[in-house]
Simulated assay, not measured.
Amino acid sequence: MPAEQNSLLLERVTHKTQFRAISFHHTVSNPKTELVLYLHWHSEAEFLFLEKGEAIFKIEEQEFYLHAGEAIFIPPDLLHSAKGINESGCEFYAIVFSLSYLFDSCANPQFTRYLQPVINYGTRCTLHLIPGVPWQKDILEMLKRMYEESHKVPEYWELQMYGMLLTVWQGLYNNYLSGFETDCHYKKLSEQLSETLRYIHDSYGEDISLNELAALSNMSEGQFCRLFKKLTGFTPFGYLNRYRIIKSCKYLTGTNKKITEIAALCGFNNISYYNREFIRYIRITPSAYRKGNLNS
């Protein structure tokens, strides 16, 4: 299905099997096609490498202008899309993988050390990779090699692919992700707000007040709002509503519940407000989203 015809947010493409939690996708857009990657999200991390042309990739509220030979790293659970910026079209490939493909357990100390920055800081960890930076050039070359190897029979690349992805991640961690964990300010913020974030994730369906959230972090409301946005990139209620909308998508696609019931289950007591917020994040109505998912 052409990207511009697919209106779903939660991507329907299966990125992994029981045995391989990594997948590769190749996209070529026709000349004069503006939307080259529809708005969606998935629970896997992703590297998008632009092979030809130019494009603007939008991750949440950030925009990245990519030229051929550049790539972008997208952490899990972030809304993203892309559009071409000239009439010549573009070509790109995606390497999509579960974080558990790298380290399979939160109890694994390596999981905590090497993956926690992405889990903690989400959108802050998005990175535009360019060949002009030596360590980023190394990653770009490895990504190209991974995609080339993926055309072989899987049994011939499984172990090698795993090793190459670990090499990519080591470079990403050493030169970029580790900075979040060694930055005392960010580390302190993560610790201060961890209970609040857990509360949002566990109680998103309930009425939640700003006073409540600030109290969990032992801060004044003003200080809490400022520091929460510094850490996550969202205001507290922007983060909460986005989380509620994403959760509601799962109800829309996985149950037959009425939309009014889904809205209430996800913390929206006003159906009109739910519809407005859904359109704000998803760009279509809840009913259109459900219908598109059923027809895909």
Rank of each mutant, 00 (worst) to 15 (best):
G163R: 02
H151Y: 15
W157F: 09
L115T: 10
C125F: 01
E158N: 09
D104V: 05
T196P: 08
S178Q: 11
Q110L: 15
G132C: 06
S105D: 04
N174L: 14
F180N: 00
D104Q: 15
Y121C: 06
Y176H: 13
K144N: 06
K144S: 07
L193C: 14
L115P: 05
F111Y: 13
L127Q: 04
Y186A: 03
E195D: 08
V168M: 10
G179I: 01
K188Y: 08
L197C: 04
C125G: 01
C184N: 08
E149T: 06
M146P: 03
G171N: 13
I119K: 02
G122D: 11
F103I: 05
L143R: 07
Y199N: 06
F180Q: 00
E148K: 07
G122R: 09
S194P: 01
L193M: 15
Q160D: 07
E155C: 00
R113F: 09
D138Q: 05
I130K: 15
N108F: 02
V168R: 10
H185P: 01
E181F: 04
N174Y: 12
S194W: 08
D104S: 15
T196R: 07
Y186N: 14
G122A: 09
Q160Y: 03
K137N: 13
Y162M: 10
K137W: 03
S150L: 11
P109E: 12
E158W: 06
L193S: 03
T196L: 08
Y199W: 07
N120K: 12
L129D: 12
E149C: 09
K137G: 03
T112Y: 14
T126M: 03
Q116M: 15
H151L: 15
Y199M: 03
Q192A: 11
D183Q: 06
L172C: 11
E181T: 10
F111Q: 09
S194M: 08
V118G: 00
W157P: 02
Y114R: 01
G163Y: 00
T126P: 06
Q192I: 00
S105H: 04
L189I: 11
M142E: 12
Y121G: 06
L165C: 04
Y176W: 07
N175H: 13
E141G: 04
P117Q: 07
Y199R: 01
P109I: 11
Q110V: 08
D104I: 06
Q160A: 05
L166N: 03
K137F: 04
R113A: 13
H185L: 02
L143Y: 02
S150D: 13
Y147W: 13
L115S: 09
S150P: 08
F180W: 02
R198P: 02
N120G: 04
L165G: 09
K187E: 08
P131I: 05
Q116L: 14
P109L: 13
E158L: 12
L129H: 07
M146H: 01
M161Q: 12
S178L: 04
V153F: 01
A107I: 02
G163C: 01
P117T: 04
M142I: 10
R198Y: 08
Y173M: 03
G179K: 14
N174C: 10
E149N: 15
Y121L: 05
K144D: 14
